[in-house]
């Protein structure tokens, strides 16, 4: 996607990113590739909240891992680049060595993994886990200074100070999630990648967490990439939304346009299938299931399930159309 946005305002760009899982089948040993992220080019602007939507197995978590530079076998980056623009420096996170990566993590980019309320070490007090992070990722580490940073950060995010002296099991799930978010942002990073930050939490805690993310974004003036299948969450906090299907971005644009004027049939389905209080009309699911990413369908990947499928959809992959400023979609219906 060619975006005519001034490069200076971009904080993160990916170009033609292909992240595949190399799976060896047991019999015969022939290698199979899972095309989890297939030719994804996105640009994230400074200071925005970018939402990535899509159902499970569409590659959104793989994209998150790749953006974080956390690429371990069987995951492989086959092609493409991921560039972070900080200050007057441009870092290709896929090309740096392990030492440099440790400095980039937490200082430039931070990651909140899925079901992150279970990532805390159960045998350490919260404060020690914070200290651990600071020690690992800051070169000029001083204990007193670090402790002051922690208290200041906890206060700023509105968490009770008692959490620092607690063990994880003494905190509720929602509180642990907030602690992990605080932990991820303690070193004032430029970009936070949050993978399903509110899944498995109830609506009230979910709202509290989203409130917290917004607050962090405003206070630290950082950029947040949130990944969730819940379109309601994107509508509430995202500035721009990218919709992923079977490893590809099918629609990308400002949140008002994606929700108000969705162009791709898959996006429209994702939004219209949500039940709502006050609406008793029957809602359905799209028939079929997401395609196998080992052998993705030819042409448009949504074509086997699309209600508006045409002959061309099954043979030719659609390109991106610019519908409006900064609003892109890929579908043959637009051509």
């Amino acid at each position: 996607m060619n975006q005519s946005i001034d490069r200076l305002n971009d904080v993160l760009t990916t170009k033609g990113l292909k992240a595949y899982y190399l799976v060896k089948t047991l019999r015969g040993g022939t290698a199979a590739m899972v095309h989890a992220v297939d030719d994804v080019s996105i640009t994230v602007h400074e200071g925005e909240i970018m939402g990535i939507a899509g159902e499970s197995g569409c590659g959104k978590s793989t994209l998150a891992k790749a953006l974080y530079g956390w690429v371990n076998p069987p995951l492989q980056i086959v092609d493409g680049s991921i560039l972070y623009h900080t200050g007057n420096e441009t870092i290709d996170i896929l090309q740096v060595d392990a030492d440099r990566l440790r400095q980039i993590w937490w200082n430039v980019v931070s990651y909140i993994p899925q079901s992150s309320m279970n990532v805390l070490n159960p045998t350490m007090r919260i404060k020690d886990q914070f200290l651990n992070v600071i020690k690992t990722h800051k070169k000029d580490y001083e204990k007193e200074e670090a402790e002051a940073t922690i208290v200041k950060h906890i206060d700023e995010l509105g968490l009770p100070r008692e959490v620092t002296t607690s063990f994880p099991h003494q905190l509720s799930g929602g509180m642990r999630q907030r602690v992990v978010i605080a932990l991820a942002t303690v070193l004032d990073c430029n970009v936070v990648i949050a993978d399903e930050p509110t899944t498995a939490l109830d609506v009230i805690v979910q709202r509290g967490i989203l409130q917290l993310l917004r607050k962090i974004q405003r206070k630290l003036n950082c950029t947040i990439v949130t990944i969730t299948h819940d379109m309601g969450v994107h509508a509430q906090i995202a500035d721009r939304v990218a919709v992923m299907y079977a490893g590809k971005i099918v629609e990308l644009g400002p949140v008002q346009k994606v929700f108000g004027d969705a162009q791709n049939p898959y996006t429209r389905f994702l939004i219209s299938s949500l039940p709502k209080v006050g609406d008793k009309s029957k809602k359905g699911s799209i028939g079929g299931k997401p395609p196998s990413l080992v052998r993705p369908p030819r042409g448009c990947r949504f074509s086997p399930r699309c209600p508006y499928v045409m002959e061309i959809c099954r043979t030719t992959e659609p390109g991106y159309e610019e519908i409006d400023t900064d609003h892109f979609a890929s579908c043959h219906l637009l051509g």
């Binding site: 009770p160 509720s172 929602g174 609506v203 009230i204 805690v205 979910q206 709202r207 509290g208 989203l210 409130q211 819940d230 379109m231 309601g232 969450v233 994107h234 509508a235 509430q236 995202a238 949140v255 008002q256 929700f259 108000g260 939004i271 949500l274 709502k276 209080v277």
Partner: peptide, 26 residues
């Protein structure tokens, strides 16, 4: 009423305006 207000409405025009207090110790 609070539970209903916390539902994330899939409409960016209807964003939450106010803040909520989360529960302390259950």
């Amino acid at each position: 009423q609070m539970l209903l207000k916390c539902l994330p409405e899939p409409d960016p025009e209807k964003r939450w305006k106010d803040q909520i207090e989360l529960a302390g110790l259950e």
